[in-house]
Simulated scan of single mutants.
Amino acid sequence: MSFIQNNIQFIRNQKGLSQAQFAAVLDWSKSQVGAYEEGRSFPSIDKLIKLSDYAKIPIDILVRNDLRKSGTSSFIEVGNQRVLFPILVDPDNENLIEVVPVKASAGYLSGYDDPEYIEQLQKIKLPFLPTGKHRAFPIKGDSMLPMKDGSFVIGRFIEDRQEIKTGKTYVLLTLNDGMVYKRVMNNIDFNNSLLLMSDNKMYHDYSIPIDEVLELWEFTCSINTQEYSEEELKLSSIITMFNELGVELKALEKSIK
C-alpha cells in the first residue's frame, strides 16, 4: 500500500504552498501535482527522488508511511535526511520504551530506521525516566564490568552530536561494528571521531569516525536479568581494584621517566 498521494499533499501543506507553487519548486506541472494528490497518477522515480531531496525524507518512508500521523512521531536527522522516529505512548500518554531482545539485536542494524521493524519490538513503561526518547538494549560479554552479560541498558536517544559527553557511557549503533556499549571520549573537534573505551581493561580502546555512528543512546539506567553471586561480586571488586592500581602504576611510571 502506498501513501504517496496523501504524503505529497501533506508535505505541500506543511510548506504552505499552493499546487502551482509546489509544482514550480519541484519542476513538476500543476496538473501533475493534482493528479498525484488525487491518486490518478503515480510519480516516476525521478520525481520521487526530487520530492525526497526537497523534503529530506527517504523515498521508502514517503511511499510506505502515512506522514499525516506524524503528530505522534518525530523526525530525526540522519546525514542530510530526516527519518521517522516514532515516540510511542500508552493510553495515558506516557512514553513506551521499545526493547531490543537478544535474539533480534543482530537484525537491529538493518531495521533500526524501519518503522515497521521498530513497531514489532516489545514495549515497557518506566515512569521514572527523564524526558526524551528511550530504548532498551541487551548487553553481551564482559567488556563493561560490572555490567552482567544478559543485562539491558536503557538509553536516551542523542540526536545532536554536540551533546556527547566525554566519560559517559553510550549504546552506539555503528556501521561496521554493529551495536556496542562503551564509555566514550568525544574527539569530534580534534579528529572527527569517538574513542570507545571498555571498563574492563582487558579490552583495548579504539576509535571510530563519527560518520560511522548511525545511532547514539546515552545511558539512563540498567536492568539486570540475573542476580550476582557472591563470587562474582568479589571478582568484580578485585578486577576493579587491579584496574585502578594499573592506572596508578602507569601514572607513577610516567612521573619517574
Results as ranks from 00 to 15, higher is better:
115 P>F: 05
115 P>W: 07
116 E>L: 13
118 I>L: 13
119 E>N: 12
119 E>T: 08
120 Q>G: 05
123 K>V: 03
125 K>I: 11
126 L>F: 08
129 L>F: 07
130 P>Y: 04
131 T>V: 10
132 G>Q: 07
132 G>P: 06
132 G>A: 03
132 G>T: 03
134 H>K: 09
135 R>K: 14
135 R>W: 00
135 R>P: 05
137 F>Q: 03
137 F>A: 03
137 F>P: 03
139 I>V: 12
140 K>V: 09
141 G>I: 08
141 G>Y: 02
143 S>Y: 00
143 S>M: 00
144 M>W: 00
144 M>D: 00
145 L>H: 04
145 L>M: 10
149 D>A: 08
152 F>G: 08
152 F>A: 06
155 G>E: 00
155 G>M: 01
156 R>A: 12
157 F>V: 08
157 F>Q: 11
158 I>D: 02
158 I>P: 03
159 E>D: 10
160 D>A: 09
160 D>C: 02
160 D>Q: 12
161 R>V: 14
161 R>W: 11
161 R>H: 12
162 Q>R: 13
162 Q>S: 14
163 E>F: 04
164 I>C: 04
164 I>H: 04
165 K>D: 11
166 T>R: 06
167 G>E: 06
167 G>P: 08
168 K>T: 04
169 T>H: 14
170 Y>L: 07
171 V>S: 04
172 L>A: 08
173 L>P: 00
173 L>D: 04
174 T>H: 01
175 L>N: 11
175 L>G: 03
179 M>H: 00
180 V>Y: 00
180 V>F: 01
184 V>I: 11
185 M>E: 15
185 M>C: 11
186 N>A: 01
187 N>R: 13
190 F>W: 07
190 F>L: 13
190 F>S: 09
191 N>S: 07
192 N>L: 07
192 N>P: 06
192 N>V: 07
193 S>C: 09
195 L>V: 09
195 L>W: 02
197 M>T: 11
198 S>Q: 04
199 D>I: 02
199 D>Y: 04
200 N>W: 04
203 Y>T: 03
203 Y>V: 02
203 Y>C: 02
207 S>E: 15
209 P>I: 02
210 I>D: 00
210 I>R: 01
210 I>G: 01
213 V>H: 05
213 V>M: 02
213 V>L: 05
215 E>T: 05
216 L>W: 05
217 W>N: 05
218 E>Y: 11
219 F>M: 15
219 F>G: 08
219 F>L: 14
220 T>R: 10
220 T>W: 08
221 C>Q: 10
222 S>I: 12
222 S>V: 10
223 I>P: 07
226 Q>S: 12
227 E>A: 15
227 E>N: 11
230 E>Y: 14
230 E>R: 15
231 E>C: 07
231 E>R: 12
231 E>I: 15
232 E>L: 11
232 E>S: 10
233 L>S: 10
234 K>C: 10
235 L>V: 13
235 L>D: 12
236 S>W: 15
236 S>E: 15
237 S>E: 15
237 S>C: 06
238 I>D: 13
239 I>G: 07
239 I>A: 08
240 T>N: 15
241 M>S: 14
241 M>Y: 15
242 F>S: 05
242 F>T: 11
245 L>D: 13
246 G>P: 06
248 E>F: 06
